[in-house]
Design a protein around this nucleic acid. Structure first.
Length: 568
RNA sequence: UGACCGAUGGUGUAAUUGGCAACACAACUGAUUUUGGUUCAGUAGAGUUCAGGUUCGAAACCUGAUCGGUCAACCA
């Protein structure tokens, strides 16, 4: 019976259980009713004007994941309709990040700019249908006449130009006869609409700017609202999934499709991801980079995908996180602890265990022969036998963590203290006999005796110790740089600021601590592309700054620590 | 005050679509453990924003209120 249960359990664990949320319910209903002949086709549409962050990861997982789940397709489409903000640098980084997350778009890489000719024709059609007109108002005039959410707007004096005149002017706009801002093409909808986006929105604006893909072919560019739905339509997208702020755009999205009489995809909105102790807006992230609060977009403290990657996060962890947080329409703030849980879960299975001392204090084993050294067996990963074993050098003098010794230990302190015996992992039992301090009272040496019979970590007499601590042989220790990262902000919601302050005032001054640590010699031959756990400390990865004689480790996340000093 | 959207333990997401609120994270016990890790077992914590209504029965449906979000770029 227990065998049955185990089998069932194991099978369940292997399945990455996909949550069925409201979007999938809509899709399943569409499949059931035969809409789009049961086809499912999504798209991920980033604007190439910045780096992707964990919030985009959620959207990527949703769009690509949905396509996978329903045997459909997902297009990668760059929403590049604003040349002054966009650049190929960003399209490259976006592609790298999506690929790293493990999604594939094969031949389905698109650009809204690919459709500029078609979208221009759409505009012509609207003009011919008397549903669009060229407007001469300045941005300011237009803003003034638009009204407010509670006060309806006023119609443009150019609203009733003839089709012929509109056509003529629009072609002139395209031909570069006007300066930036001089004219726009506007939809003729309803200046009294309670929805601001329906008050004759701008469809095309004049921008004498070089586009990263179309060069100088165009000097007029479609607005988001006149490009997005049409692009979806052209690509036969079935479900156009976007974030909540586009909810009020949906009537316009649908208006364009309807007036153009083209294939109609369905726009569905969901709540974007928010994480506590960080900021997510592109503007703020950019500001952090520009003002050197962080080292760059891939600073391991950044919530960017490249930052998380450099920090040591795995794609599996992020995808799993995206799955766990779910998809809904209510505003949310996810606890970073959940993200951290997801990496730990993955890294626990993958990370090679190594020994390293971050904050050393020397231990001298008085009864260990001078000059002797030996190599002890250690398992590389207790969670994965196939990871194999390695040997660690041991000698008379070792470093242990300062935290692992207390001269006057509180009640439940199990580690080394005067008279107490502990196990050195994979080595011996040692007992503290005395300590040596310097003139200022700091402990400089801890003296111990070891039990030669306890080699490997077990005493033949069966006696137990309450604690096992890690160590590094002084003689064999390799000095490495370790970057201890912590959350970027010390406030849960840096955006919610008190008077006269802004999010930057809540930057955590201790978000990065760089230390020199001692590690076992194995680090010098370790595969730099793998993940590691410094035993009892946390998960780490090699930073790209590592060079032959200067290894650099980034702390991805600490291990969970259930030790609570008495009184706390 | 206009339109649209939302409201379920500390956090996030569920609830066979009207049948006595579940899962995960976080917290806390205990067991196991050569990582105070892992694993395992368990505890606590919401009666579903509020008020009415429909119903044998409401987290779900209706009405109203309250609170929160989004929208007034020639950004996306």
């Amino acid at each position: 019976m227990s065998t049955m249960e185990n089998t069932t359990k194991a099978n369940d664990e292997n399945k990455v259980e996909k949550n069925t949320h409201f979007i999938h319910q809509i899709i399943e209903e569409d499949i059931r009713t035969g809409k789009h002949e049961g086809r499912v086709h999504t798209r991920f549409p980033p604007e190439p004007n910045g780096y992707l962050h964990i919030g985009h990861a959620k959207s990527i997982c949703l769009n690509f994941g949905t396509a996978e789940k329903y045997n459909g397709l997902c297009n990668l489409r760059f929403d590049d309709t604003n040349p002054v903000k966009e650049d190929t640098e960003y399209v490259d980084s976006i592609k790298e990040d999506i690929r790293w997350l493990g999604f594939n778009w094969d031949e389905r890489e698109f650009y809204a700019s690919d459709y500029f000719d078609q979208i221009f024709e759409y505009a012509i059609k609207l003009i011919q249908k008397e549903k669009a007109y060229v407007c001469d108002m300045t941005a300011e005039e237009m803003s003034n006449s638009r009204g407010t959410p509670t006060i309806s707007g006023k119609e443009s004096p150019f609203r009733n130009r003839s089709v012929v005149e509109n056509l003529e002017l629009f072609y002139a706009m395209k031909a570069g006869k006007f300066h930036d801002g001089e004219k726009t093409l506007r939809a003729k909808i309803d200046m009294e609409s309670p929805n601001m986006h329906m008050r004759d929105p701008v469809l095309y604006r004049i921008l004498h700017a070089e586009h990263h893909r179309t060069g100088n072919k165009w000097c007029i560019y479609p607005m988001y609202d006149f490009a997005h739905g049409q692009s979806d339509s052209i690509e036969s997208i079935t479900h156009s999934i976007c974030t909540l702020e586009f909810e009020v755009h949906r009537p316009l999205y649908e208006w364009c499709i309807k007036e153009l009489e083209i294939y109609a995809p369905r726009q569905i909105e969901f709540a974007r991801l928010n994480l506590n102790y960080t900021v997510m807006s592109k503007r703020k992230l950019l500001e952090l980079v520009k003002n050197n609060f962080v080292s760059g977009w891939d600073d391991p403290r950044m919530p960017t995908i490249c930052g998380l990657r450099r920090r040591g996060y795995t794609a599996v962890a992020i995808r799993n996180f995206a799955e766990i947080v779910g998809v809904a329409k209510r505003d949310n703030v996810i606890d970073v602890a959940l993200l951290e849980h997801c990496v730990r879960e993955d890294l626990n299975k993958k990370a090679i265990r190594i020994m390293g001392v971050m904050n050393p204090v020397k231990v001298v084993i008085d009864n260990y022969p001078d000059g002797q050294e030996e190599y002890l067996d250690a398992v590389n990963n207790p969670e994965d036998e196939s990871a194999g074993k390695r040997q660690i050098p041991f000698s008379k003098e070792i470093y242990i963590e300062k935290d692992d010794f207390m001269e006057n230990p509180p009640k439940k302190y199990f580690r080394l203290s005067p008279g107490n015996e502990v196990r050195l992992r994979y080595a011996y039992f040692i007992r503290c006999t005395h300590i040596i301090k310097n003139s200022s009272g700091e402990i400089t040496e801890i003296h111990c005796t070891y039990d030669p019979a306890s080699k490997g970590g077990n005493s033949p007499d069966g006696r137990k110790v309450q604690s096992t601590i890690h160590w590094v042989s002084v003689k064999h220790a390799k000095t490495v740089e370790v970057r201890l990262y912590d959350r970027l902000f010390s406030k849960e919601n840096p955006d919610e600021n008190e008077e006269g302050k802004d999010y930057k005032d809540y930057l955590n001054p201790h978000s990065l601590e760089v230390i020199q640590a001692y590690a076992e010699p194995f680090v010098e031959v370790a595969d730099k592309s793998l993940k590691y756990q410094f035993e009892r400390i946390g998960y780490f990865c090699f930073d790209k700054d590592s060079i032959a004689n200067h290894l650099v480790f980034n702390r991805t996340v600490t291990l969970r620590d259930s030790y609570k000093p008495a009184g706390k």
